[in-house]
Structures are given as structure tokens and as C-alpha cells.
Design a protein around this nucleic acid. Sequence first.
DNA 1: ACAAAAGTGTTCGATATACACCCATGT
DNA 2: ACATGGGTGTATATCGAACACTTTTGT
Lengths: 220, 220
Amino acid sequence: MAIGLTVDTVVFTFEDSALKVLLVRRGNAPQRGRLALPGGFVGERENLEQAALRELREETGLRHVSLEQLYSFGNPRRDPRRRVVSIAYLGLVARGRPLRAGSDAAQVAWLPLEKLPKLAFDHCQIVSCALERLRNKLDYSIAGFQLLPRKFSLPELQKLYEAVLDRELDKRNFRKKMDLLGILKPLNEWRRTGRKPARLYSFIPKKFEKLKDKGILFPF
Amino acid sequence: MAIGLTVDTVVFTFEDSALKVLLVRRGNAPQRGRLALPGGFVGERENLEQAALRELREETGLRHVSLEQLYSFGNPRRDPRRRVVSIAYLGLVARGRPLRAGSDAAQVAWLPLEKLPKLAFDHCQIVSCALERLRNKLDYSIAGFQLLPRKFSLPELQKLYEAVLDRELDKRNFRKKMDLLGILKPLNEWRRTGRKPARLYSFIPKKFEKLKDKGILFPF
DNA sequence: ACAAAAGTGTTCGATATACACCCATGT
DNA sequence: ACATGGGTGTATATCGAACACTTTTGT
């Protein structure tokens, strides 16, 4: 009896000032009815990442997500049926992507990380692991911008950093640093939510690449 | 036909001013006669890390190594026989540990990372991945001290940092920072290799934990 | 008018970096 | 004596951290 091999994907987005994770409600046993990460068995001749993309697409309708391998979970008792090792992947997307529940999944939804219900298998642990990775990535990658729409305001970006890092940041220092990095293009558009309108910016990937070559990091 | 699951371990040490990796010469097909990372199939009810420790012990005689999961390699053609996914682990040990070639391995040896021969399967890629991880770990962990004996000199420690980071460091700045961190205990012993004897130090794990709590990093 | 969120500069302390000479030993 | 590697201090620049008020809008 061989060891089973699955992939699971943790996809985050940022919406309503909260970090959210993409979950499906399981339509089949085991753990039927419970929320779980999108995922499933790896095909015989399939790349791991392709398997993760396929499962994500099949179960949630999400496509064109850039995934990175997160960690492999191999506790012998993590699946009650039989030995299954799962390779977890991490993805970051802007909010508002169209979703569509697949055949195995009764429901798809973005759930805020705060107050998650009990998840299937060891998926709670996988989500924690993903959050930790995201926290680290915020320091040296464009993770923060992948979680936002193409146009975003600085208060919004700062709230994202604060949500992920779980601490408050100083508004002036935050903006000063973003300004210094030179990776944001100010647009002639303002978002008029609430009170005073906030200027919108877009991220300039090219400038970021140059910074990376120089080894410059984010300071938050 | 199910997907096979193996573990491979990349164990580094530092000896003769060079970073070395532990390799075995394969005694069986496929790739018989070629150098490879210690590793093998995961047991039906075995933890992944335990499997890695077991294979390491069986093939090289090394025990009591602290391993961390590195990455999972799943290219469908990485093993010519059949589909095998391998979960790689990283270990760091002091030089001089006793080795003993196991049954599957015709030979065991520490090989300097510079000028490695062609390795079996995708093991060259796995080693590169491990080196990259080690480089990162040097910044925020005790990785540097795990690679050295309990007693070591500052020139030796610096050479280790330089070998891993692949760049020269300023002697005075290096020592100043180590002094500032306060994680080294100067011993009343000197190593008289070459010319002027070098003072020996030992690492103080307790002090390091305190630094970690404060989020202080190494600056190299 | 007032409440709420957007926007804006300066100061200070810490630390990374650059840099050159003397010392102890073996040959 | 000399070659080799061990050991030491200072000055500067950069960057992260702390900190308060004005502006614009909706109600």
C-alpha cells in the first residue's frame, strides 16, 4: 500500500482591511461539510505546481495564480483514511477575482484569517505556516502588491502591511520609505471612500527589480 | 502505479576553510557509481524527518543531526525509473563526526562545494537549493555555529561566513559585531596553527535566544 | 461646525561601512 | 629578519524610530 501524494494551496487576498484565505467546503468524505484548502491528488505524470494549479482551478475557478512551494506535511496520521503526504503551495491574488465552486467543493469563499472555524485535516497548521511565510516575504518581495488591485491607496497598502505583520506602523515613516524606494507611481486618480479622498498609486515592477539587484529590503 | 516518495538530506560542514557536503557513492542501480545525497524511500508509517534521519544514519553513520525541511522536488522525470517525489532536508554539523558507509552506499565522503562532480538525479539542484537556504539562515540563526566545533577562533568563524556568503568581510567590522552581539564566550585557550595563535571562543546559545526575542539580526 | 481619515518633516540614535597599523609566532 | 596571519579603533553616512499638526471631505 503506497503513500498518497496530494497538493494543497493556500491563497491569500486582502479585502475590507482584512487578510483572507480561500477555502472550499468539502462535498465528499472524509471531513465532509468542513472547510478545507483547495487541493487533491497529484497526477501520475504531473508537475507538483501544475497539480496545485489544476486543483485550484477545478475547485475554486481561480486561474493564472503564481504559486510558490510552501512546505510538505507528512504526519502519518494527518489523513484518517490512509497515509497521505501533502505538498502545500502559497498564492497571493488581488481581491475580486471570479470564483466558481467545482464538483468536489460544495462552496468556495474568502474567509478572514481572524476567527477561522475548525478546518479539515491539518489545514489550520498549513494556513499558519503560509501566514508566517507571507510575513517574511513582505520584507523582500512584492508580496504586498500581489495582494492588492493594480490601483491602490497608501492607507490601504499600509493597512495590508499592518494586517500581515500584526502591528501598527507609523504613517509618516511608512510613506517616507515607500517614497524613497521609488517603486510606486502616483496616479491622477483619487479614491473617495469615507472622508478625504486618497490618492491612488500603481506598483512599478521594473523599479523593484533594480532594488532587488542592489539587495535593498523593506524596513517594516 | 503510485508515486514514490523519498527523502534526501543535504548535510553541510566546514573544514579546511571550505564548505563541504556529505555524499555517498551509490552501490546500486540506477546511477550506480555516481555520487548522490544520502536518502531513500519513506516508510509506510514513518515521519518524513524520521525517515531522513534513518536514511542518513544507515548510509553514512551520522546521527543526532538536527534537520530542517528544505524543499520538495517533484519533476516527473527526475528519476529515470519511475515517478519519485523527494522531500529534501538540510542539516549542519561540526566537522570530524565519525562516518561509516552503509549497505547501499559504497563510500561516504565530505566533498567541497567548489568543483563538485556530476551528481545522481537532480541532486546538484538540491545542493544549490540548500546552499541558498544556508546563506539566508546565516542572517538570523545559529547556522554558522552549528557548522563549527564547540571551540573555534574568530578568523575561522569569519572564513566560514565568507565561504557561505561568497564575499570578503572586513575583519574589524566582523569582530566588532560579534563582540556587540555578546553571544561568544572568550576561552583561555589559543589555537596555535600557523603563526600567531588565535584565541578560541565558544557560542552561548542562551544569549542568542535573547537576541532572537528582540528581533536582532546578523548584519553580514 | 465637527468628525474622520489623508497627508506632510524633522530630530535622534543606532548601526553598517570604510579604512591602516601593530603584534606574536614559526621559519 | 622576515613572512604570515592575529588582533585592534575611529570617523562617517545611512537608516529606522519617534513624534504632531494641517487639510480635505461628508455629515
